[in-house]
């Protein structure tokens, strides 16, 4: 089965799977070479590493989105350097107008045509509905794991689910944790090799009780409405993804703040770690406002490579100091 590589949370895996293709939402890691495209001044490292990583996956196609300007432009840059089919999905920044929703729906249809051109099969409505139900069930199962897994295990389970479509439950259940300070990890996408942040927090008496990064639970869509799912599955798919995922890129980005407020209350969050990649303007610009809004201690991590020589120690020290502050 051809794999379709992507990273944007607004691309519904169900839509790719319903076309008979393997949706594979990946997280790039460091140390995966610097083949292509070349390092350019001001280029977002995530965008570059995603491109490298995607090429190494021998994909049937790569789907980029317009969620941020760097990824939008990376699609063009990579498209000039590879023969692998590339699709650029236009995710509107606005979300409150009928026109924005219409653009998103239209893009889903256009993506469908692209997939058919590259080995996919146009799905019948009933089949799409079945695929959506299956994903909906799995996501609920996934969310249920949070009570049983460590914070790191849970976040990695989400990443694995995005990558494979299946849930790996062989992780050891976490023991009873008492007196752990619940903190939120907020920001853009993680890299595959920086999940040690979870361990560093745990070693210092904390627990990442909310993974609000782009690759965490923040970007899991809402459950589907069963009635709508039968009547008009594509419309329901658009609603669940475009209508409910809170993200910093949305204009206005009030959904993000509403969601965060709710989750902070529900999880009893005591502090926030905001992590973003250098040159990520969208998250970088939001840090000050998030600090003002949340009213909680905030630690900002904005490194190129959290585990590059020297960086690991620096990150560990900062997390240790932050956790001490929370205590």
């Amino acid at each position: 089965m051809k794999r379709i590589i992507y990273s944007c949370p607004f691309i519904p895996a169900e839509w790719l799977a319903a076309h008979g293709l393997h949706p594979c939402r990946i997280l790039p890691g460091h140390g995966q070479g610097h083949d292509s495209p070349d390092t350019l001044a001001g280029l977002c490292q995530y965008a570059r590493l995603f491109s490298n990583c995607a090429l190494r996956e021998s994909p049937g196609a790569i789907v980029f989105s317009t969620l941020c300007d760097q990824m939008r432009r990376m699609a063009e840059l990579l498209g000039r350097q590879t023969s692998i089919p590339i699709f650029l999905f236009n995710v509107p920044s606005t979300w409150q107008s009928p026109a924005a929703r219409q653009i998103y729906l239209h893009e889903l249809v256009r993506l469908g045509r692209f997939l058919v051109t590259h080995g996919g099969v146009e799905p019948k409505q009933e089949y799409l509905s079945e695929v959506m139900k299956s994903y909906d069930r799995k996501r609920e199962q996934l969310k249920g794991l949070r009570q049983h897994l460590s914070a790191r295990q849970f976040s990695e389970a989400i990443v694995n689910f995005h990558r494979s479509g299946s849930i790996e439950t062989n992780a050891n259940p976490k023991g009873i944790e008492v007196d752990k300070l619940p903190v939120a990890l907020l920001g853009g996408p993680m890299f595959a090799d920086i999940f040690e942040i979870f361990d560093l927090v745990a070693q210092n008496g904390g627990d990442i009780a909310l993974d609000a990064t782009e690759s965490g639970e923040r970007t899991l869509p809402d459950r589907f409405n069963p009635t709508n799912l039968e009547d008009n599955p594509l419309d329901e798919l658009a609603h669940a993804y475009f209508g409910t995922i809170p993200d910093v890129s949305r204009r206005p980005n009030t959904l993000l703040y509403e969601w965060l407020d709710r989750m902070i209350r529900e999880r009893g969050i005591r502090g926030i770690i905001i992590r973003y990649n250098t040159w990520c303007d969208l998250w970088h610009a939001e840090v000050s406002r998030l600090k003002e809004h949340a009213g909680l201690p905030v630690l900002t991590l904005h490194t190129e490579n959290t585990y590059a020589p020297g960086e690991r120690l620096r990150t560990a020290t900062r997390i240790e100091a932050f956790m001490d502050l929370l205590k």
Binding site: T66, C68, D69, Q70, R72, N90, P92, S93, T94, S249, R251, P252, N253, C280, D281, L282, H284, A285, E286, S288, R289
Partner: peptide, 16 residues
């Protein structure tokens, strides 16, 4: 303010 296919700098600053 127009947003969407614009530069992130401006979109982020306008949101600020």
């Amino acid at each position: 303010c127009s947003v969407g296919a614009t530069c992130d700098d401006f979109s982020a600053i306008a949101q600020r």
